[in-house]
């Protein structure tokens, strides 16, 4: 008993949500440390489309169990709950994990309530010690990291998005279809009347938790572009000062300041920004400000929580080099 770990494979129209692949990365390690089998549970309405999913053969699970029924097309929460509750009672898994997608965050709590199991949300790190599994997450406004356990089995959690990279397996998982018993209740109380696929995502600068900003101190457009690389590593958005926008180094939608975007991120990294009022009114509410500037007396250096007196392009190059080396 409790020999397997379930991970929710969220499918839609023949696509597997990348978050379902991300969560396999830490779960693979957990499964190995605790000597359990990691099983991806896929729910879908079309068998052929499911089996055609490209990532299926390279994902990190030991097995993939898929369940097919037309009612699963839009993964209605009540039906998904029933399926997982059935699987839990049949197989008594050690843990059931969902990605913190909207679907995961909607289904996991229903399953947990039915199983009277504890559920931890937005877990972004795991710890295995003496055969016990600990779940870590930032909490209470993200200034505190909490370490949690669950006193019930299965251990359940939703795993934070973008917290783990997708990794590929050496070995192909065992893929098999699960047929649920004859009398299984496939009904759902929810009726989808209409579905509109998502359009391209709008700019996320104003709601970004981490912003890297660049000013004239970066000296050139090429140097400025390095900010995008840094942003990718930090999972941040890029912004620029007015002069930088007018110099054509970055598009106007990314201008931070008066008559531009106002940002209130947890972390603001200012590269080569002097700190003119036109810019600072757009970011002075940032929780933690880091400034890199050759000029020790620049207003941004006084405003920052930490300042590095340094030529911005050199600092940025060194920073990128070190961050990439760590990976």
């Amino acid at each position: 008993m409790a020999e397997c770990i379930f991970a929710f494979g969220q499918c839609f129209e023949g696509k597997l949500h990348p978050a379902s692949l991300e969560i396999l990365t830490p779960l693979r390690e957990v499964a190995d440390r605790l000597n359990k089998r990691l099983i991806l549970i896929g729910l879908a309405d079309d068998k052929e489309k499911f089996l055609a999913i490209p990532e299926l053969k390279k994902l990190l699970a030991d097995e993939v169990w898929y369940i097919i029924h037309p009612n699963l097309k839009h993964l209605p929460d009540d039906l998904c709950e029933r399926v997982f509750v059935y699987l839990a009672s049949e197989h008594k898994p050690f843990g059931i994990f969902f990605p913190a997608t909207k679907k995961g965050l909607s289904v996991a709590p229903r399953v947990a309530a039915s199983l009277q199991a504890g559920l931890c949300a937005h877990v972004n790190a795991f710890e295995v010690k003496n055969g016990n599994l600990f779940l870590l997450r930032p909490t209470y406004g993200e200034n505190i990291i909490a370490k949690l356990t669950s006193q019930t089995l299965p251990i359940m959690a939703t795993i934070a998005l973008n917290a783990f990279p997708i990794k590929e397996a050496e070995k192909e998982p065992l893929i098999k279809e699960l047929k649920l018993p004859e009398g299984f209740d496939w009904s759902t109380k929810l009726t989808i009347k209409n579905f509109k696929p998502a359009k391209k995502e709008p700019s996320r600068l104003s709601v970004a938790k981490i912003v890297v900003g660049g000013g004239m101190g970066l000296k050139s457009k090429e140097n400025f572009q390095m900010l995008f690389e840094l942003a990718k590593i930090l999972n941040a958005e890029v912004g620029g000062t007015r002069p930088a926008v007018h110099a054509g180094w970055v598009e106007a939608e990314r201008m931070i300041g008066v008559s531009g975007v106002s940002v209130r991120p947890k972390l603001y990294l200012a590269f080569g920004i002097s700190g003119a009022i036109q810019h600072t009114v757009g970011m002075e509410g940032s929780e933690f400000i880091v400034s890199i500037n050759i000029d020790k007396e620049a207003p941004m250096m006084k405003m920052a929580h930490i300042g590095f007196v340094c030529d911005a392009p050199s600092f940025l190059k060194a920073l990128l080099r070190k961050l990439k080396a760590e990976d």
Binding site: I306, F308, V309, D311, F315, R321
Partner: peptide
């Protein structure tokens, strides 16, 4: 607020990390 570090790009970048 206002802690300032001076030095070479490499060591400063290390400090930031």
């Amino acid at each position: 607020r206002g802690e300032i570090f001076e030095g070479e790009p490499d060591e400063l970048a290390e400090k930031l990390i």
